[in-house]
Amino acid sequence: GTVKVQGITIKVPNPDKAYKIAKKLAKKYNLTVTRKGNTIKVE
């Protein structure tokens, strides 16, 4: 899958794990995490 952070896309082998990490970071930096299948977008 991929993770998008402010325009940066990161390929990740485990979208579930990445999503959990993204959620933690999002809370810390007051961002929104959206997930569509293997693509995770943080904005």
Score class of each variant (00 low, 15 high):
37 G>D: 04
21 I>E: 04
9 T>Q: 07
24 K>P: 00
22 A>I: 15
7 G>Q: 07
15 P>M: 14
41 K>M: 14
15 P>E: 03
5 V>G: 05
29 Y>I: 05
1 G>I: 12
22 A>C: 14
20 K>A: 12
39 T>V: 14
25 L>S: 00
11 K>A: 11
12 V>S: 03
6 Q>C: 15
34 T>Y: 03
22 A>E: 00
31 L>N: 03
37 G>H: 04
7 G>C: 15
26 A>S: 10
21 I>P: 00
19 Y>K: 04
24 K>C: 15
17 K>M: 10
43 E>F: 13
25 L>A: 03
7 G>W: 12
35 R>F: 11
2 T>H: 10
32 T>S: 08
29 Y>E: 00
10 I>N: 01
6 Q>K: 13
32 T>P: 01
24 K>G: 06
15 P>F: 14
43 E>M: 10
8 I>C: 15
2 T>C: 15
42 V>E: 04
31 L>Y: 05
30 N>E: 03
20 K>G: 06
1 G>E: 07
29 Y>S: 02
38 N>I: 05
18 A>S: 03
38 N>K: 05
13 P>G: 10
13 P>L: 12
27 K>N: 07
34 T>E: 04
2 T>G: 04
43 E>W: 13
43 E>R: 07
32 T>R: 11
1 G>A: 07
36 K>F: 10
27 K>W: 05
13 P>S: 13
20 K>F: 06
6 Q>A: 14
34 T>I: 09
29 Y>D: 00
42 V>D: 00
13 P>Y: 08
26 A>L: 08
15 P>Q: 02
33 V>Y: 00
28 K>N: 07
43 E>C: 15
3 V>N: 07
18 A>E: 00
39 T>S: 08
32 T>G: 02
3 V>C: 15
27 K>Q: 11
27 K>S: 09
23 K>F: 09
36 K>C: 15
42 V>F: 11
38 N>D: 08
10 I>K: 02
15 P>C: 09
7 G>S: 09
3 V>I: 13
29 Y>Q: 00
12 V>H: 05
41 K>V: 15
16 D>S: 08
5 V>Q: 04
10 I>Y: 06
41 K>P: 01
29 Y>N: 00
17 K>W: 14
26 A>G: 06
36 K>M: 10
